[in-house]
Amino acid sequence: MTPFDYHAPKTLRSAMRLVQEFGDDAKVLAGGHSLIPSMKLRLAAPSVVIDLGGVAGLKRVTAGNETITIGALATHYAVESHRLLPSKCSLLPETAAEIGDAQVRNRGTVGGSIAHADPAADWPATMLALDAQFDIAGPDGERAVAASDFFVDLFITDLQPGEVLTGIRIATPPENSGGAYVKMRQSASGFALAGVAAQVTLDDAGNCASVAVGVTGVAPAAYRAHAVEDALVGQGIDAVADAAAHAADGVEEFQEDHHASGDYRAHLARVFTQRALSQAIDRAA
């Protein structure tokens, strides 16, 4: 096989040094569920692989009263099985449980999936619905970027050369909140033909004080369905069906292949938005 240099830094600092030193020649390895298959299929041949697996401190998941943090190297399973998340923010473990199979969830990482930005991955939808902040380390220090500014295009994120995603921060949802992630699986790969994450907070009257909807699988990048959110704020469950009809508004280009046309994906976005919102409101009440 094409030889490559393998580096396994122990600290984030040394990792960053390597990332900057090798630039475009290097690929960062987290759980290895995107890069390794590509290399095995000889569709990718980076000359340097920087394995973050040994970097201390990037695997932790915490769920506080104010903030939930997920280290970039936390596995999907670490989120799925976290003791406190079901009560603090059930949308996170629910999303994790929808990814791949048990083996994939035990190796694959949340940060790896987000940085990879597959247009049909599950996490982007949920991160958008939770208004997650992504912590990024780079040559000029650290910065944070909102999920809604992060997913730019097909496999393209706001990450710049020399930058590494280090963690995810999410404001712990207040009382009377609920979330849901539902998707239709592509029958072969299990990736989302359409996946919708919804997170709502209800006011005292049982109407939506806040609504956030993230959609994956439908467009080249996951997106926030703002039109849905605008239509539902201040409204109750009766308004969900009408609001969900806007789930694909503003999408200029749809993903399409022999599994599903663009029209069908747009339709699925609406159906699953309605389902996600109904469940989310139900759970919030």
Binding site: Q186, S187, A188, S189, D257, H258, H259
Partner: peptide, 19 residues
Amino acid sequence: AIYDESGQMITGSFMDYAL
């Protein structure tokens, strides 16, 4: 198993061929 018009098999892996 789908071959496209140019004779390429476009369901050549378990990502696209659904068992």
